[in-house]
Nucleic acid binder design. Structure first.
Lengths: 194, 194
DNA sequence: CCTAAGTTGTACAAGTCTGTTTGATTTACA
DNA sequence: TGTAAATCAAACAGACTTGTACAACTTAGG
C-alpha cells in the first residue's frame, strides 16, 4: 500500500456532498416524491451541483439510503442488547425509534427507484440485530411464542413508523412517543396470561 | 315532490363511474401517485371518459375517499360494538382491518391533493366509533388507562395498515393477518399486570 | 498569488402528467 | 328505429421533472 492518494475531492465538495445526502434523507422521509430541485434547495446548493456529485436520481437515493442505514447501524451498535430482553428492547426503542422510522420512510421512497434486490441487501443486515433480540426473548420465555418472530419484528416497525408519523402530523408530542411506544410494544410482546 | 326527475345519467355511464371509483381506490391504495391514465386503464375505460365524469384529479380522489370511507362506515355499522370491549374489538378488527388499511392508503394519497380540512371532515365520523369503543373499554377497566385513548386508536390503525402492507408485499399470509392482529392488539391494550 | 477544482444560473432536450378539444363511433333507451 | 347520450383515439397546450451542456464566478489549497 502507498501512503494513500490525496483526497479525491476538495474539502468544500465533501462538505456539500454531506449536506446533499442529509437533505435527501430529510426530504424523502417527508415526501417520497421530492424532486432534485427540492433537495438541492434544502441543501442550500444549486441543482447542478447535485448532478455534479450524483449522476442520477437513483444514485442519490441509494446514497441517502446507505447513509440512513449506516446511521441506524451505528446507533444500534451502541445499544446493549444483552441481559433482560425487555430492558434491551426498551433501550433499543428509545434510542432508535426516530431514526428507524426515518429509515423506513427513505426505504419506501427508494422502493420506487431502486431494484428490489439492491434494497433488500442493504436493509437485511440492519434488521438482523432486532430479529435476533426478539428470538432470544422468545427462547427465554419472556416474549410470547404464539406469534412468529417476523410478525413481532414487523409490528414493532409499524408502531415506530406510525409514532413518527403522528409526531410529524402533530397528533403526538415527541417527548411522549418513546415512553408510549415502549409501553405498547412490551405489552404486545408479553406472554398471554390465560 | 314530483315523481322524480329521470336519472341524470344513462345506465352505462353510472356503471362506468362505479368502475372508475373502484379502480381509483384500488390504484391509489397501491400507489399514491398513480396517474389518471393508470386508473382509466385499470377501470377499462379511456382516459377522456374519466375526465368526462370527474373534472379534475382532485374531484376523483375525493370521490374515491368518500367511497372507501362510506364502505368502512357500512361495515362498521354491521358490527356489534356492545358487550365485552375485547370481543367487540376482535369483531371490529376481523371485519374491517383490510378495508381500514385501504382507506388509510387512499387517505394518504388524498393528503397531497386535497385541502386538509376537507379530509378531516370526512374522516372524523368514521373514527368516532372506534374511539368510543376504546374509551368505553378503558372506563370499564378492561383496557389499560395508563396510555391515552387517542394513542391506542392510532396504534391500532398503524398495526392494521402495517399488516395490510405486509400482506401486499408477501411477508404475511392474508389468512393469518386478522388472527395475529387481534392477538397483538388485545395484548397491547391489556392493563399492565405489575 | 495562482491555478485547478468546485459552484452557479441559464438554457436545452426529452419525457411525463394534467386537462381540453375535436370528430367519429357506439350504445342506451324511448 | 331514431336520437341523444356516452365513449373513444388522437392531438393539443401547459406545467413539471430528469439529465446535459456551457460559460462565468468563486474559492480551496499548494
Amino acid at each position: 500500500m502507498q501512503t494513500g492518494t490525496p483526497p479525491l475531492r476538495r474539502a468544500d465538495a465533501r462538505h456539500n456532498i454531506d449536506r446533499i445526502i442529509a437533505a435527501t434523507v430529510d426530504c424523502l422521509s417527508r415526501q417520497p416524491s421530492a424532486s432534485i430541485a427540492d433537495i438541492a434547495h434544502a441543501a442550500g446548493v444549486g441543482r447542478v451541483t447535485v448532478y455534479g456529485h450524483f449522476p442520477t436520481r437513483e444514485a442519490l437515493v441509494e446514497a441517502a439510503l446507505k447513509r440512513v442505514l449506516a446511521d441506524g447501524d451505528q446507533v444500534l451498535k451502541g445499544v446493549d442488547l444483552g441481559g433482560d430482553p425487555r430492558i434491551a428492547l426498551q433501550s433499543l426503542i428509545e434510542s432508535s425509534w426516530l431514526l428507524t422510522a426515518q429509515a423506513s420512510a427513505v426505504l419506501e421512497a427508494a422502493r420506487h427507484s431502486l431494484p428490489p434486490g439492491r434494497i433488500q441487501a442493504l436493509h437485511e443486515s440492519s434488521e438482523l440485530r432486532v430479529h435476533e433480540l426478539i428470538r432470544r426473548g422468545q427462547a427465554e420465555g419472556v416474549f410470547r411464542q404464539d406469534l412468529p418472530a417476523p410478525w413481532l419484528t414487523d409490528a414493532l416497525h409499524h408502531l415506530m413508523k406510525g409514532a413518527a408519523a403522528d409526531v410529524s402530523s402533530g397528533r403526538l408530542a415527541a417527548v411522549d412517543a418513546p415512553r408510549w411506544l415502549v409501553a405498547t410494544v412490551l405489552a404486545a410482546y408479553s406472554v398471554p396470561n390465560g
